[in-house]
Design a protein around this nucleic acid. Structure first.
Lengths: 352, 352
DNA sequence: CAGTAGATTGAAAGCGCTTACAATTTCATG
DNA sequence: CATGAAATTGTAAGCGCTTTCAATCTACTG
């Protein structure tokens, strides 16, 4: 009973409507719209006019199904509530919107099963490629990704096989410099709040910390190396613990990321110590809040927005040329001096 | 020359692979997978086993194209870099992941053309519905949305025709209470930093402020009502301006949102005034940073996460039953007392 | 002017899925 | 045991697009 819907269904303008209006075949219209070269200028113009007139917008699922480009990429993030992901996303979004692509967001909320499941659905979705921010369980899907030849780029995570494209910052170097900075201020008892150690960056930062200490001839003190998880609560608990249980207490705390540092600042204040006079604090990342808290947080800047940008660009390249060899891009970090660090007043020659 | 790809193309497991493995028709498999009722238990089991065994994941574009559900909704946000959107998104994400839906993110970055363009593409995309956070140019696409019968829900924005589903907070009431709170602390010269006035919430908050002042018998002072834009910079400039140019200066500042309040705090500190002893500050929203800044910001809490949650649920209802009448859901705000407000020390009987 | 390479366009076959519609099976009833 | 309704499954027609292949057209060349 139902007629061919095209004729009287006003709700959806399809490519064949455009074709009819322009007096051309849908094949030609498709070619114009997907930027095929061998179309005459006159034809192109006719098509564009029809598109304009009808307000045609391509149907993405159809396009994607037919093997065309969906101009959509996926972004897998661990969470959304802190500025870290937001700032990276800003960079991604900038390039995507410049080249007219969409973003599908997947938040794993740190659940392994979700991360794995998402990646599987992503490969079967509209998405042409995938950006992963600090993924934690890559081994559960890396093979599949590669088997499908599905383009992806890691942000702030690497994996042992070194066979993926990665955008990251100089975690080791940044941590090293931060630690040395504290040493140069005279600090000898510098606590370190670790990040989530299943993340590469966290391990690198720990390495940087220990290396700097060694280079400064400061013996490593295990009870100053504290567990953390890159979360505010973890930073809070770590700082609280070290303040209550280690004697003499540290004169400085280096937190693996800003979010932990904020937690540490809370704990320090709760403990009645003033920042930076009685204890120095330094973070890592330079999320937007870092310059918003009071006192403003001294930290190691990762060029987050830039990382997002470069990752997006790298992914687009990989989408265009799946063969191009994976590359690791490491961006420089930068020590940002603000108000949470001060020279150490205690002049003690340190014992273990 | 090319064979039916199914047989030897390992890259993609399709529904027909599942059908073959299960020894059923693809129609039956489809029915099982899309939750159709009239399938025997045995069949369902056979299908699920095949799915499991093959690691099948439905191809979203195909499903969507064929008229099925894509289980994907769109989210249009003005920006990403502050906790406001992030927190709402958290709520959205919670319900979406519970019911197994995906999120496509569109950031307009406050550009009218982008907002309009996105909504148009969204309607032709994989998305089944759309959530809009504080949209600003609804008139450019509202008719189209309705003509397509495309489900959508506004978050924190209303529109004149009252014909859309909206989730919002009690902006008027919240602003009223915040202002009264300051009055009760003895403040008489309360500056107000406005939000972006093309957003409904900003107008409501202004209304609340003036109403409270009137109810407290405090004459409105135009030079204490300052332009703002919901951004930190705007708050900073507004506060700086009022501090430099209005005499006597205000003893309290009510910023239309927390982000502006942070800017105001900066300006105040730069001006050499201490918070809250010399000047009180109050914000609106209670974004995560509010309890992170120092001193912790007294503010009016919008239940952001809950708003996201409810909006997502409302949208899902509308997707299921497009006929259901639009509803406006207004959630209560709550005054959160923290550390940026104090009694007014000056005892002056106010003139204009 | 026939012949040909190259440019441009059209016809038609899917992409993987949903869903009328039709066919088959099941099973309680008469 | 025939019968019909209900339950279950299969067949096949698209959804709107890209792309291969073939057809047509154009402009030269000899």
């Amino acid at each position: 009973m139902s007629e061919r819907t095209n004729s009287n269904n006003k709700l959806r303008v399809t490519i064949s409507d455009v074709a009819r209006t322009a007096g051309l075949s849908i094949a030609t219209v498709s070619r114009v719209l997907s930027g095929y070269e061998f179309v005459s200028e006159a034809t192109r113009k006719r098509v564009m006019e029809a598109v304009e007139q009808l307000g045609y917008v391509a149907n993405l699922p159809a396009r994607r199904l037919a093997g065309g480009r969906s101009r959509t990429i996926g972004l897998l993030v661990p969470n959304l509530d802190n500025g870290y992901v937001g700032t990276i996303t800003l960079g991604i979004d900038k390039v995507l919107s410049r080249i007219n692509c969409d973003l599908v967001l997947y938040a794993s909320h740190h659940q392994p099963s979700k991360e794995t499941y998402y990646v599987h659905t992503i490969v079967n979705g509209i998405t042409e490629g995938l950006l992963l921010i600090a993924p934690q369980y890559t081994n559960t899907y890396l093979d599949m990704l590669r088997a499908h030849d599905f383009p992806y780029v890691f942000i702030d995570q690497s994996e042992p096989t070194e066979n993926s494209s990665i955008v990251e910052a100089e975690n080791y170097q940044g941590a090293y410099e931060a630690t040395r900075y504290l040493c140069n201020l005279g600090h000898r008892r510098i606590a370190f709040i670790m990040g989530a150690l299943n993340v590469q960056s966290a391990r690198e930062r720990l390495r940087g910390y220990t290396a700097a200490l060694i280079d400064c001839n400061i013996p490593l003190q295990q009870n100053l190396i504290l567990e953390g998880n890159y979360q505010q609560q973890g930073g809070y608990e770590a700082a609280k613990h070290v303040l209550n249980n280690v004697d003499p207490p540290p004169t400085a705390i280096f937190a693996s990321n800003d979010i932990s540092a904020f937690g540490a600042m809370d704990a320090v204040r709760e403990h009645g110590l003033s920042i930076p006079d009685q204890i120095s604090i330094i973070g890592f990342d330079d999320v937007p809040q870092a310059s918003l808290v009071y006192p403003k947080l001294t930290t190691v800047r990762q060029p987050l927005e830039q990382m997002g940008q470069i990752a997006a660009e790298t992914l687009m390249e990989r989408i265009k040329d799946k063969g191009c060899p994976p590359q690791r891009i490491t961006l420089a970090t930068q020590l940002i001096l603000r108000d949470t660090c001060a020279p150490c007043l205690l002049h003690d020659s340190e014992g273990s």
